[in-house]
Amino acid sequence: EADPRLIESLSQMLSMGFSDEGGWLTRLLQTKNYDIGAALDTIQY
């Protein structure tokens, strides 16, 4: 079963217009401990 923190973070990022095609966003959020800010910083640079 998916981590509730992942579901919450992923749904927030999907609502911002990101896609999780191929699961890349799920993996990114997992490596950033479900921190949306850290994930966005990684995507920006």
Rank of each mutant, 00 (worst) to 15 (best):
P4K: 12
Y45A: 15
Q12R: 14
G37H: 13
I7S: 11
W24R: 05
A2T: 13
E8D: 11
T26C: 04
T42D: 15
T31H: 14
Q12P: 01
L28S: 01
T26N: 03
E8Y: 10
G17V: 01
S15M: 13
L14G: 06
L10E: 00
A2K: 13
D35E: 08
Q44L: 15
D3I: 06
D35G: 02
D35N: 10
T31W: 11
R5N: 08
S19R: 09
P4I: 12
R5Y: 07
G23Q: 07
G17K: 00
L14W: 05
G23M: 07
Q12A: 13
F18V: 03
K32T: 14
R27I: 10
E21L: 09
K32M: 13
S15W: 05
E1M: 13
D20A: 02
L29R: 00
I36L: 08
R27T: 08
P4M: 10
Q30P: 03
G22F: 08
S9L: 07
D41W: 09
M16Y: 08
Y45N: 15
E1F: 12
G23S: 05
Q30H: 11
A39Y: 03
E8I: 12
L29C: 01
E8N: 11
D41H: 13
R5A: 08
R5Q: 09
L28E: 02
Q30S: 08
L40C: 07
G37Q: 15
Q30I: 15
N33L: 08
S11I: 10
P4D: 10
M16D: 03
K32N: 10
E8P: 08
M16E: 04
T31S: 15
Q30E: 13
L29W: 00
L28P: 01
S9V: 09
Q44A: 11
L6I: 06
L14N: 08
I36Y: 04
I36T: 07
T42G: 07
L10S: 00
W24N: 05
S15C: 13
S11G: 12
M16T: 03
L25R: 00
K32S: 11
A2L: 13
A38W: 05
Q12M: 12
L14V: 10
D41I: 13
S15R: 13
T31N: 13
E1P: 14
L6F: 07
I36M: 08
I43G: 01
G17P: 01
F18E: 02
I36P: 04
L6W: 06
D3W: 05
D41G: 07
L25K: 00
K32E: 09
E21I: 09
T31Y: 12
F18M: 05
F18I: 04
D35P: 02
G37A: 14
S15L: 11
Q12N: 09
Q30T: 12
L25H: 00
N33I: 06
I43Y: 04
Q12W: 09
A38S: 09
K32F: 10
E1I: 14
E21W: 07
R5H: 07
R27C: 12
G37P: 11
D35C: 07
G23H: 08
G17Q: 02
T42M: 11
A39H: 01
I7C: 10
R5M: 08
L29E: 01
D20M: 00
G22Q: 08
M16L: 11
N33P: 02
T42W: 15
E1D: 14
E1R: 12
I7R: 13
L6M: 08
M13W: 02
Q12L: 14
L28K: 00
S19H: 12
E1Y: 13
D20S: 02
W24V: 05
N33G: 10
L25T: 00
G22M: 08
L28T: 02
Y34F: 11
D3K: 05
K32H: 14
F18K: 00
Y34C: 08
Q44Y: 15
L28Y: 02
A38N: 06
T42S: 13
L6Q: 05
S15Y: 06
S11W: 09
Y45G: 15
D20H: 00
D35R: 02
A38C: 08
M13G: 02
E21F: 09
G17D: 02
Q12I: 15
Y45T: 15
S9A: 14
I36S: 03
I43P: 04
I43K: 00
A2S: 12
L28A: 02
I43L: 12
Y45S: 15
K32W: 08
M13F: 07
Y34Q: 03
G37Y: 14
R5D: 06
T31M: 14
D3V: 06
Y34V: 01
W24L: 05
R27V: 08
I43C: 09
A39S: 06
M13R: 00
S19P: 04
T26Q: 06
T26V: 05
E8M: 11
A2P: 13
I7T: 13
L10V: 07
S11F: 12
L29Y: 00
Q44C: 12
L40T: 04
L6D: 02
Q12D: 07
P4H: 12
N33R: 07
G23T: 03
G17T: 02
F18D: 01
K32Y: 10
Q30G: 07
Q12K: 15
W24H: 05
N33V: 07
I36D: 01
G37I: 14
S11E: 13
M16N: 04
Y45H: 15
W24E: 05
L10A: 01
E1C: 10
L28C: 06
P4G: 10
A38F: 05
S9Y: 06
M16Q: 05
L14C: 08
L10W: 03
R27M: 09
G17S: 03
L40P: 00
T42L: 10
A38I: 08
L28W: 02
G17H: 02
Y34K: 03
G22D: 12
G17N: 03
I7Y: 10
N33E: 10
D35Q: 06
S15A: 14
M13D: 02
Q44T: 08
G23R: 04
K32C: 15
L29M: 04
Q44V: 09
E21Q: 10
G23N: 07
M16K: 07
G22S: 09
Y45F: 14
A38T: 07
N33Y: 07
L29I: 05
D41K: 14
L29A: 00
I7P: 07
E8K: 14
A39I: 07
Q30A: 10
N33Q: 10
G37M: 15
Q44I: 12
L28H: 02
G37V: 14
P4W: 10
Q44S: 08
D20N: 12
G23D: 04
